[in-house]
Amino acid sequence: MSVTQLGMPSIGVPRKGFFTDTSLCIGCKACEVACKEWNSVPADTSLELTGESFDNTSALGADSWRHVAFIEKQVPAADPSAHDGVKWLMSSDVCKHCTHAACLDVCPTGALFRTEHGTVVVQQDICNGCGYCVSACPYGVIDQRQGDGRVFKCTMCYDRLGAGEEPACAKACPTKSIQYGELDELRERADARVTELHERGEEGARLYGHNPDDGVGGDGAFFLLLDEPETYGLPPDPVVTTRDLPVMWKRAAGAAAGLLLGAVAVFWGARN
């Protein structure tokens, strides 16, 4: 029972989205920088090196709305006398702008809302920092900003979309790994790209978040990956938590009724 299923409001037509084709990513992090610049996202103050390949951003968060993951995957050599090879996997992660968005469903203030482009955005003048969305997001995207108290995440550059511009990350991406457009068209483009990669022998190519029948009703920002989602730090099969909410409310109603009956019972026939 998500807000979207209840039809409040219906998703904007045509719905806008991101298709991030990781097979084209060169790990330049231009998207991370462009996002910070355009949206005035504060610096993450720690200047530590993680030692995790070239990734020192580590995860999405209140101050990182794009995050480029770097994976150095060992490829065992066919010839035992040769050295093993390394395969580079790079992927720019972002808020998925879910169809059934748990963050939006659970937000008690209405700060999170569905825009006319079908994206999910926080209204910063309303959020009271209750943190419910943080625990609800199955992808671990949205988070509370330290020292501010409110939550922040990718807005798909709401201000730019309104002016007919593409989001800053897509604009800055030099390889068109990040593609912005109408979701239906992006899905077609992605299908064609997977077929092409399979023909070229890239067996591991697969789409992630493109299927409207998955646990979150499909993502407004979906991906072409070259390995299992968990390799990139993505959940393999996320389900929106509110799918089970009708069951939960029923159980709570049963428990409440039981409590009331129990309360009557403890007074029944009690002598002192």
Partner: peptide, 22 residues
């Protein structure tokens, strides 16, 4: 526990059955 306690009353801006906190 709120990040912005002074905005507590925003909780009563809406009534949402999908939000147990609401």
């Amino acid at each position: 526990d709120l990040g912005r306690p002074e905005r507590f009353l925003n909780m009563l801006r809406v009534a949402k059955p999908t939000s147990p906190m609401s």
